[in-house]
Design a protein around this nucleic acid. Structure first.
Length: 303
DNA sequence: TGGAATGTTCGGCT
DNA sequence: AAGCCGAACATTCC
């Protein structure tokens, strides 16, 4: 799936297009794309106030179009999907549309009414605009959710906005292997397999090293590698392996700069003489990639 | 040709 | 807390 740098690239394109626009229609062709208790009608006639990102999620803040008009009729829309947990959304308070892209989700800006490509599950149209936002997702692992607050979406710190205090808490609390830890969205939000591998190479740490066994210097190196690799991914517009596209249809460029990801058997780019190895943890886990010489499990022997 | 793999996430289990 | 497993799904690859 799109990881943090890909989602950030998408958000940067969506932001200028969407901010200030008013949603005048939504076509949810596949209702099971929407999860949670609030129905999709809650987004209609609202204006996009913010386009943001947390981890791998796209966040659209949707305000009442008449916001600012004091006490504008308390149009309470009772918009509920669930009988058991009915949600009443006040129209005069904002909601957030949270979009998680799963493995293959795409947000595409297309001419309004344009033919829809296969796997288009939802479309947002905007008042007076000649384009629309089409949401496609072949594998359908992605989800939309309408929420009154972002508290739930922000359980783990965003990897790019990570502060040292939060990193210290992570390194104090956890003791597991580095690669699964970096990819655990409940611990740190935004990193998937590609960037986890590239980060560990940059920090010269073995994917199976335990975080509890890192020296202070290694913890700092890892913290810096998280920031620098993610920023680098963003600078190159993310990685297009197969499905990732920006809203205007563009591709990323970071896939040409991988140092370890998908490079098993090829020479280490540090010219250390070793070849990149593939690491298969569990039967179903995604493979890790690392340089056995630059990323030793045990500290290199002193000569 | 079918099975495996895939840029993910969740819940359940130990 | 950590790690393993299976499930949701469609397409591509070997």
């Amino acid at each position: 799936m799109p990881e943090l740098p890909e989602v950030e690239s998408i958000v940067r394109q969506l932001r200028p297009a969407l901010i200030g626009r008013t949603i005048d229609g939504v076509d949810l062709q596949r209702p099971d794309v929407l999860e949670g208790d609030i129905g999709i009608e809650a987004v209609v006639k609202r204006t996009v106030a913010q386009v943001a990102r947390h981890g791998k999620a796209i966040l659209l803040q949707l305000a009442n179009t008449a916001a600012g008009v004091s006490g504008a009729g308390v149009d309470r829309r009772s918009i509920t999907k669930s009988r058991r947990h009915p949600q009443v959304v006040r129209f005069d308070s904002p909601v957030w549309l949270v979009i998680r892209l799963g493995m293959t989700g795409q947000c595409v800006l297309a001419p309004r009414g344009a033919p829809r490509m296969p796997h288009t599950h939802a479309v947002l149209t905007f008042a007076g605009e000649r384009w629309e936002l089409q949401y496609r997702d072949a594998r359908r692992f992605g989800r939309w959710r309408v929420v009154p607050s972002l508290a739930e979406a922000r359980r783990a710190p965003d990897a790019l906005a990570l502060r040292r205090a939060a990193w210290r808490r992570i390194t104090d609390v956890h003791r597991g292997q580095l690669r699964p830890l970096l990819m655990n969205q409940r611990i740190l939000a935004g990193i998937g397999n590609i960037y986890a591998n590239e980060i560990l190479f940059a920090a010269r740490l073995h994917p199976r090293q335990r975080i509890s066994r890192l020296t202070d210097g290694q913890r700092e190196a890892l913290y810096r590698a998280v920031k620098s690799i993610l920023r680098r991914g963003i600078r190159y517009g993310g990685s297009t392996i197969r499905d990732y596209r920006t809203p205007d249809g563009g591709s990323g460029g970071f896939q040409n700069r991988f140092r370890v990801y998908a490079r098993a058997g090829r020479a280490c780019t540090r010219r250390c003489g070793a070849r990149i190895e593939k690491l298969r943890a569990a039967r179903d886990a995604q493979p890790g990639f690392f340089c056995p010489r630059c990323q030793p499990l045990a500290p290199p022997a002193r000569s």
